[in-house]
């Protein structure tokens, strides 16, 4: 049986997201979708959903809601959000069984930026152009094309297997480390110094960071001659540099096309690393070749499959402690930005 979640608070920015709109960019439609696909996939896997099922993407300060449905499993992945169920702390990175009337509250993230909340059976908002993702700027998709607010009632699909064992993720992935890029498509629109600066200097995420893109503070990148190009297509991770010289990493809600040169492109495996940095956090870039980038994408897909295969019935019901999170490299990865991933 299905039902809905009744929201007491929507949190800072909570939206319905999935894999985004595929095939419509040629019509000016922003792709949107979860900023960190791997964490969305893991949240879905924890509750037995197809990996691409719609989830709630929560940002910095989470929502609060009441379950007005029969038994349903829930799992939270991503940034270090405090989660409570009926005012009792509950662990992230594992499934929980909820009953009608349960009240779920997600607090303010202690580290990281975005979390992914999956409900078994998914969220039953109507797909628009093949996706349930919300694009708030054009009011397309999700729940009425906007972020969730107090009073919203979000229909859920209903858990077909509510008695299934509650899975946990024994080794949550971290999202620290340098952000790898492939130079171009318009690196030649910049001075050699600008390219060296991009790859050598530390940047910090500015307050001008949202689902559309993250503008970075730090050294200014100089264009070779002028900052207007003939508009062309933009991908997830394009690093566009407008006239002010500050790089902007374009993310899921980016416009489909743009007229500023793009010095480099963040590889898909590292989009989550950018997506988890909050204003003030450091970002360092390193360059890989297109061939290396493809090899990394393939390795990341294998790694994700291994993570999902390793999900196992959760052993304990204890709340996450700082020690456990440190042991999982979660806090260290987020706060220090050190590369703890072991990737090349």
């Amino acid at each position: 049986m299905s039902g809905h979640l009744r929201f007491i608070s929507g949190g800072a920015l909570t939206t319905v997201q999935d894999e985004g709109r595929v095939g419509w960019q040629r019509h000016g439609i922003s792709a949107s979708g979860a900023i960190d696909r791997r964490l969305m996939h893991l949240a879905n896997a924890l509750v037995g959903n197809p990996l691409a099922e719609a989830v709630l993407e929560i940002t910095l300060a989470g929502p609060e809601f009441v379950v007005e449905a029969d038994a349903v499993r829930l799992a939270l992945t991503g940034a270090d959000f405090p989660l409570s169920i009926n005012d009792r702390p509950a662990a992230a990175w594992r499934a929980h069984a909820l009953r009608r009337g349960d009240r779920v509250r997600i607090g303010t993230a202690r580290g990281g930026m975005r979390g992914y909340l999956a409900l078994a059976g998914g969220l039953m908002v109507a797909p628009v152009l093949g996706s349930r993702s919300t694009h708030t700027r054009s009011s397309i998709g999700g729940f009425r094309g906007r972020r969730l607010e107090a009073g919203d009632e979000i229909p859920i699909g209903g858990d077909q297997d509510a008695a299934a064992p509650l899975l946990g993720c024994p080794q949550p992935p971290d999202f620290g480390g340098p952000v790898r890029v492939v130079l171009g498509p318009q690196a030649d629109a910049f001075t050699e110094e600008a390219v060296a600066t991009l790859l050598g200097a530390p940047f910090t995420v500015s307050v001008r960071a949202d689902r559309m893109g993250a503008e970075l503070d730090g050294p200014v990148l100089a264009h070779r001659d002028g900052f207007n190009i003939i508009s062309d297509g933009i991908v997830n991770g394009s690093i566009q540099v407008p006239g002010h010289g500050r790089p902007v990493v374009l993310l899921a809600d980016r416009q489909s096309t743009g007229g500023y040169p793009k010095i480099a492109t963040v590889i898909s495996a590292d989009l989550g690393r950018i997506g988890q940095r909050r204003p003030g956090d450091e970002v360092r870039f390193s360059a890989v070749s297109p061939e290396e980038a493809i090899a990394i994408a393939r390795a990341a897909a294998d790694e994700e499959r291994a993570l999902i295969a390793a999900l196992a019935p959760a052993a304990d019901h204890a709340a996450p402690t700082t020690e456990r999170l440190l042991a999982a490299n979660l806090i260290s990865g987020v706060v220090s930005g050190r590369d703890t991933s072991g990737e090349p």
């Binding site: 419509w24 040629r26 003939i230 062309d232």
Partner: peptide, 22 residues
Amino acid sequence: VIETVPTYRSLLVLFDPLVATH
């Protein structure tokens, strides 16, 4: 090939790196 985006003077080809290469 997942989708293509035609613009003034370029065609952007988006592809699945698990299947295709540049």
